[in-house]
Design a binder for these strands. Structure first.
Lengths: 264, 264
DNA sequence: GAGTGGTCTAGACCACTGT
DNA sequence: CAGTGGTCTAGACCACTCC
């Protein structure tokens, strides 16, 4: 027989799915639920913890627990990379107008808030290995956050790395204030004579760290999608490594593989 | 100040990372940890729950809690699809010898155990929409499990759907006993005159359902990667939909996007 | 039977939010 | 201030594994 907290979670899940508890509605308090199901408060909390991990409810201290409103899904497609590259040769004004985030979500530039921070940093063993440089080599570490206006959490946490000396030829690239938001890494690299030939995405899933959950505006148990994006240039040199952390409950990564035709 | 259970989790995490608690080692019992950290048992359990979600430890009822041994990672690459398709024209004997699972893991056929089960099923609204058929249309639902010999959990849970009438032209395809394991969907479809043109993967992350966690041999909080694979044939018809659930702590999905060169 | 993890209780205290 | 969720306790009982 299933545990009490599992049965309570199932019952509440059903009530939410059926619309009996509509999005935005405040759930009964923990004490009320405990009385209703004839269990103790910690048991109710265990049940709520499951629903929170599934992204169905949102508990706010001092306020209450609420049925989560469906948030717009972000579909991040392969097509995005081709689109970003093609964009690098467009005039600056047009590049400014629409970035990759808008391309993914179908929303407008005004819907977003951007934040960027740059700092030089020595390469650890892992990054040095991927870049094929000596550990300790100076890297440019760029931190990006994209927030949807009027929403609680950011869309993604991006940590991007470039080899410092490779991009230093254009001083503008070392300055976060000069960041040609939104997007435009292909264009930035073009100014120092680099063309990206291919991009490899490595996708994994894991539970969020406490800090990540807070930044992404997700409950403590909601999974995150982690993407390591490795960009290789036309001389087979790894030029950029990006680690992207996205909320798993609202992100879909889409990859299309075109296959060769069979010989007739 | 951080909660007690967080500090305990961090401390144990550090001891595991540093090798003080090596893989395979039994952790001190919950009561022993409670005494050591001067907290109650439920607090210790909360801390252990975090590490279990991170896939670092494994609690077995009646036996003890153990530091998890690193399990071989499965890298599932785009290349896999091209490889599978090219394989469809090889002689049967050679196809039997190496399937996709071996291709991903680099292990041999003998290391795996396979399980397949087929049954017809009416299409629900979601699948009907994707196949562009009427809801209720008969589908062939195929359930696959692949287990690594000598390991606790299966590598992936696969639910594959085909439109029944499309594949019924070859009765062998309707019979799980005739399953040409390992792998071979491209070849199966070839026998009814279908050639796959492209495959779209939609990747998401979420916490596991209790049953999935058990089947995959992961702790209750460890994230799973969910892949919906949609295969479209050369006449732009969706011919197969596969839902694949994989343990997030040992699966890496790898996708490489080749970009067009800039005009010189 | 002894020892382990899993579940559950009844109650306490704290932090936080609104009025 | 009252009401909410978050943390923690001390102890109970159960299910399970091994001896």
């Amino acid at each position: 027989m299933a545990a009490k907290y599992e049965r309570i979670a199932s019952d509440l899940r059903r009530k939410i799915r059926s619309g009996e508890l509509p999005p935005g509605r405040q759930m009964p308090s923990q004490t009320a639920l405990a009385e209703h199901y004839r269990v103790s408060v910690p048991t109710v909390q265990q049940a709520l913890g499951i629903l929170q991990a599934e992204g169905m409810i949102d508990a706010v201290q001092g306020l209450g627990t609420f049925v989560r409103k469906p948030r717009p899904q972000v579909r991040r497609t392969t097509d995005r990379y081709r689109w970003e590259k093609a964009r690098a040769h467009l005039p600056a004004e047009q590049r400014q107008r629409e970035g990759a985030a808008e391309h993914d979500t179908g929303l407008a530039f005004e819907d977003f808030e951007f934040f960027a921070e740059y700092h030089p940093e020595p390469a650890d063993d892992e990054l040095a290995g991927l870049f094929a440089v000596e550990p300790g080599t100076r890297l440019l570490h760029r931190v990006y956050r994209t927030r949807l206006r009027g929403e609680d959490g950011v869309l993604s946490l991006i940590d991007s790395y470039l080899v410092y000396d490779v991009v230093a030829a254009n001083p503008d690239l070392l300055d976060a204030a000069k960041e040609p938001w939104p997007g435009g890494t292909h264009h930035q690299l073009l100014t120092v004579g680099i063309e990206i030939d291919r991009i490899t995405d490595e996708v994994t899933a894991r539970p969020p760290q406490a800090e990540e959950a807070e930044l992404l505006g997700i409950g403590p148990g909601v999974s995150v999608l982690k993407l390591r994006k490795i960009s290789t240039d036309t001389t087979d040199r790894v030029v950029e490594i990006s680690d992207v952390v996205m909320p798993g409950d609202r992100t879909v990564m889409v990859y299309t593989t075109q296959l060769d035709r069979w010989p007739q």
